[in-house]
Amino acid sequence: MTDTLLALSTDHCRITPLTADDARELAAITDDSVTSRIDFLPAPFTEGDARALIARSGGGDVFHAVRGSGSAELNGVIGVHRRAGQDYEIGYWFAARARGRGIATEAVRAVVGALVSSRPGCSVVAECHPDNVPSRAVLRRAGFVSTGLAGRRPGRMLHAWRPAPLDRIDVC
């Protein structure tokens, strides 16, 4: 998804491209709990850093704002990053106040769904540190499985998105 998503909506989320007007809110939700896990974010993450991140969005890296369906408040960010060929990587972070409510899972599912619908045959991956249990749970609920391979970033493991099988049997 090297083009900006125009807009996505789910039952509880609105997902739109980040704009320069989002810089203050982006800096506010990007605290040490985020910067300690995302290697390309400086700590502290300032409004200037947020403006720079937003300004580089486009082309191979597109950052999206995640808001509640009835709120203008920024809950999180989902990045879609072009890799080689038809490969994409997603990454995300959410405000501490938005965690544990299912928002991340719902938003990640929506972005991945839009990505694979608009790019038939593409693959979608994510990297996650093995100790980041909440993020691994988001990935699992969104349809990602661990590949057992190391990611590009130190200490990260690679997860690949797999479509749900149509003939899945949950109970035998």
Rank of each mutant, 00 (worst) to 15 (best):
G100W: 13
G100N: 14
G100K: 06
R101M: 15
G102N: 13
G102S: 15
G102I: 12
I103S: 07
A104Q: 06
A104K: 07
A104E: 09
A104S: 04
A104T: 08
T105H: 08
T105F: 03
T105G: 13
E106G: 10
A107M: 11
V108Q: 03
R109Y: 08
R109Q: 13
R109W: 09
R109C: 14
A110G: 10
A110W: 08
V111F: 01
V112H: 00
G113A: 07
G113W: 02
G113I: 00
G113E: 01
G113C: 10
G113T: 01
A114H: 12
A114R: 04
V116F: 02
V116P: 07
S117T: 13
S117Y: 09
S118D: 15
S118I: 03
S118H: 11
S118P: 02
S118Q: 15
R119G: 05
R119Y: 10
R119C: 07
P120G: 13
P120W: 14
G121I: 15
C122R: 06
C122Q: 05
C122K: 04
C122M: 07
C122W: 09
C122P: 09
S123I: 01
S123G: 12
S123P: 00
S123M: 05
V124P: 10
V125P: 00
V125L: 00
V125Q: 00
V125E: 05
V125Y: 03
V125I: 03
V125D: 02
V125A: 00
V125G: 02
A126C: 07
A126D: 03
A126S: 06
A126N: 09
A126K: 01
C128Q: 05
C128I: 08
H129W: 02
H129L: 05
H129S: 02
D131N: 11
D131S: 03
D131C: 02
V133L: 05
V133N: 01
P134V: 14
P134W: 05
P134G: 07
S135N: 10
S135Q: 03
